[in-house]
Computed example of a mutant assay.
Amino acid sequence: MKRALLIVLDSVGCGAAPDAADFGDAGADTLGHLFEREGLELPNLAKLGLLEVLDRGESPTLPGAAWARMREKSVGKDTTTGHWEIAGCVLEKPFDTFELFPQDLLDEIGGPFLGNVAASGTEILERLGEEHLKSGYPIVYTSADSVLQIAAHEERYGLKELYELCQRAREVLDQRGIRVGRVIARPFLGDSAASFKRTANRHDYSLMPPETVLNRLQAAGVETIGVGKISDIFAGSGISESHPTKSNADGMAVIERLWREKREQPHLIFANLVDFDMLYGHRRDPAGYAQCLREFDAWLGGFLPEVGEDFLLITADHGNDPYHQGTDHTREQVPLLTLNAPLELLNSEDFTQVARLIAARFGLD
C-alpha cells in the first residue's frame, strides 16, 4: 500500500516572486516578515528544511527531509490558480477579473443585488449588512482575484437559497464563457454592523479544471481524498471523496483520522488549511497569522513520527503578507518541504514539481 499526504498552507509564501512588481507586490514576504517582526519560531517545520528555504541559517533536519523554493508560472496569484498548478496545470491565460459585474449578467443570475463593488469581506458586511437585512437582497462583490462573491444572512436569506443562487451564478458564467475562477457563497450571522460575522458554511463553485494529476491517479486506481476546500477548488474533478472542514484545527484533526485509518487502497490525502489566508492574511493581522503558524507547527511536531516511510509534502499556493498594503493575495514564491520524496527536489520555475513528485510516488510517468 502506497500513500502520500499533501498539505497546502493557504497563503504561506516565502518572498516576492521575480515578477511581483507586475502584480503590485514588490517587497512582499509573508514568512520573512513574520519571522523578523513577530519573533516567529517554527521548530518542527525547521526539521523539514524551512530555515534553509528562507535563507535564515541551518538547523538539524530529519532523515529523509528535502526542501526547495518554487515560483509560480501561471498568470495569477489566487487560490485556484495556485492549486491547479500544484496539481500539474499551468495557466498561461489569466482568469477574468472585474471591478464590477455587468448589470445584464447580474439580472440573468437572479438579483436584485446590493453592492457590485470590489471590497473586502468584512468591510462589505459593515457597509451593506444592515441594508441586506431590511431588503432581503443578497450582496455581490469581488476583489483583485477572479471571484464573484455573494454574501447573505444564513437565517434572513437562507443557506440553501444562497447555495442555489451561487450555483446559478456558476452556470450563467460558464454558459457565457466568462472565466471567473470561483463563485463563493459567503454566509454570515448577526443583527447589526457591530455583530456581523461570516460563518464556516462558505462554499466555493469553481471553474472546471483541465485534466490534472488527480484525474490520472484516479484512473490508475489511486484514491484521492480532499480535506477542506480541495473538492471545491477542483469542482470535484479527480476527487474520490471529500471531507469539508470548518477551521485549521478541524482540518488537522481530519488529517490525523484519515492517516490512522491505514487503508489498503493506495491513496493521496490532499488538504488545504485556509485559516492563515482567510482569517489573518486578508485581514492584515500579523500577530494572528504568526500564532496560527505556531499552532500548526505544534500539531506537526506530534504528527511527524506517524509519517514513517510514507511521503509527506507541505507547500503553499500563493502569499498573503499581512504587512503588505491592501487586503489581497501577494505574488510570492512558496516553500516545498518533504519527507521521503521519490525524486530529487529542485528549486523550480513552477509549482508542477509537486504533481511530478506525487505521480512518481504512485508509479506514474
Rank of each mutant, 00 (worst) to 15 (best):
D297I: 02
R156A: 15
T315K: 06
V8S: 14
R284E: 03
L40I: 00
D365A: 10
V12Q: 04
D22N: 04
D19G: 02
P342H: 04
G177H: 08
H83R: 03
V12K: 03
G27C: 12
G238Y: 07
Q325G: 15
E211I: 01
L337K: 12
L62Q: 05
A169P: 14
N347V: 02
G221L: 06
E36N: 04
L217P: 10
L105V: 15
V8G: 01
A341N: 12
G24C: 08
E155A: 12
I86Q: 05
N44M: 02
V147R: 02
L114R: 08
P43K: 04
E171Y: 04
K197A: 15
G115W: 06
Y157R: 04
H329P: 12
E99Q: 12
D250W: 07
A193D: 10
E41R: 12
D55I: 00
E211Y: 01
D277N: 11
R71Y: 00
V213F: 02
S59Y: 01
F351C: 05
I314N: 09
R3T: 13
A316S: 15
E92R: 12
K134N: 03
E256A: 10
H153W: 13
L273D: 09
L217V: 12
H267M: 03
L279G: 00
E241Y: 00
A65F: 11
R283Q: 15
A4K: 08
A20S: 13
R176M: 07
M252D: 00
P266D: 13
G129N: 11
V274A: 12
Q103V: 08
T352C: 09
N116F: 11
E171C: 01
T30K: 08
Q333H: 04
L128Y: 10
N44P: 04
L148N: 09
A249Q: 14
L258N: 07
V334Q: 06
L105D: 10
P63V: 07
P187S: 11
Q265P: 01
A68Y: 07
R263Y: 00
Q103M: 06
V147C: 01
E171R: 12
T97Y: 02
E171H: 08
V334Y: 03
S348H: 12
L9N: 05
G308W: 08
G76Q: 13
P322Y: 01
C292W: 00
L189V: 14
A220G: 03
I239C: 10
R170M: 11
E241V: 15
G136Q: 08
R3V: 12
A194P: 01
F95T: 10
W299S: 08
D275W: 06
P210S: 10
G308R: 09
G308Y: 07
D365F: 03
G236H: 05
L357G: 07
T352E: 07
F196G: 11
T327W: 11
A194F: 06
Y163P: 14
D204F: 10
T338H: 06
E309D: 15
